[in-house]
Write a protein that binds this DNA or RNA. Sequence first.
DNA 1: ACCTGAACACCGTTCAAGT
DNA 2: ACCTGAACACCGTTCAAGT
Lengths: 223, 223
Amino acid sequence: MTDAARTAPRRAGRPLEKVLSRGRITIAALEVITIEGYGGFTMSSLARTLKVAPSALYNHVSSKQEVLQWLEDHVMTMVDVSGFGSEPWDAAVRRWAWSYRDVFARHAPLVPLVAVLPVTGAPETLKMYETVAVGLAEAGVPGETIIPAIVAVESFIFGSALDANAPADIFDTGDLADSSPTFTDAVRSQDRTSGAAPADAAFRFGLEALLAALESTRSGPHA
Amino acid sequence: MTDAARTAPRRAGRPLEKVLSRGRITIAALEVITIEGYGGFTMSSLARTLKVAPSALYNHVSSKQEVLQWLEDHVMTMVDVSGFGSEPWDAAVRRWAWSYRDVFARHAPLVPLVAVLPVTGAPETLKMYETVAVGLAEAGVPGETIIPAIVAVESFIFGSALDANAPADIFDTGDLADSSPTFTDAVRSQDRTSGAAPADAAFRFGLEALLAALESTRSGPHA
DNA sequence: ACCTGAACACCGTTCAAGT
DNA sequence: ACCTGAACACCGTTCAAGT
């Protein structure tokens, strides 16, 4: 008999795991949001999915905010870090950054929360940071530059995730076109390389700029 | 007698402007938020400041969201674009970007709204874009690059504005330090040039990266 | 045309009472 | 230890009734 089984004995017929736990609550939250969107995500709808009274949730969670923080950490596992250790450093960063942006474009309401998410309570997020930090260190990015670089890329990603949700006509100047001729012209002639969405062209521009800056900080004969 | 006066006659003793108008509602909203913060900003508190019943607001505004969009456009006037036309292009972009980030760091809850703010209803925002677009065009940035460049810089600014509100210990790994040695090391050795806040070091890194990318797109013998 | 006051349909959260 | 049901203190928004 294991220690765990001895300290937590259970009657036969009962489920092996508690109905309400961080894990179960988190995936229920993801389920609600996938089906009903963030607008339909309430403590009530979450409780309904878990077949429990709303008040029961508060035996396991201190607030809706905390559920969202759990969800945020979970969503981080969907970000693709597989390039680190298997591809050249810049390809790995590209893969990571694009998937990071795509994931949070689908979870835009979580973006503002990231600024308040301490890594202590977000183990998956920390795991991602560690992978990226190792990747940059092995690429020869100096130690004191790694955090500013990660934060800069991440800030760009979060802003771009919000921007990815902008309607296509957000820059249509309408009847104000006369007062903003240069901007209106720029909108008309904007780069649409390979039919990419405007948000994608901007993301590529910024990401490549950040990659070039990273490249210029590298030292030594690294891969 | 002016046309305006003829078409809008008023009795003596009445205020020259209506009590409730986009302008008045906007500055009342700013007042509430400055004093009570975004958490204290409700249609009720807004109405109280304007000495009016909450329901009265709906004769002038379709939703709280719309008030926030008006506010967002107003906040844009606080961004410093004075460098364009008076400084070298890169200094002008630097001044603009830093002040843009600072303004929205103080108004972080408005950040997610920007993705849904059409320039048609945001004349001040459009004015800012026009100034920046002219600045970049005169600097020799090609027309098709101007929009992607502005969007990239802006996305970086919005993400950085959120990041500027992060607590100082957000990257403290605590008892998870063992499982993330490289990241923990990087946090310990991060660049603190001239005692700048971590968020500032990251912002500088990213902004200079974007400026370098802009520089490399310039053509011709421009200032 | 624009205001008031009452009402509606929600929220997130708390807490006594049960098992 | 953890659940239920009722309650609380709010929200944003609508609408009939007034002027």
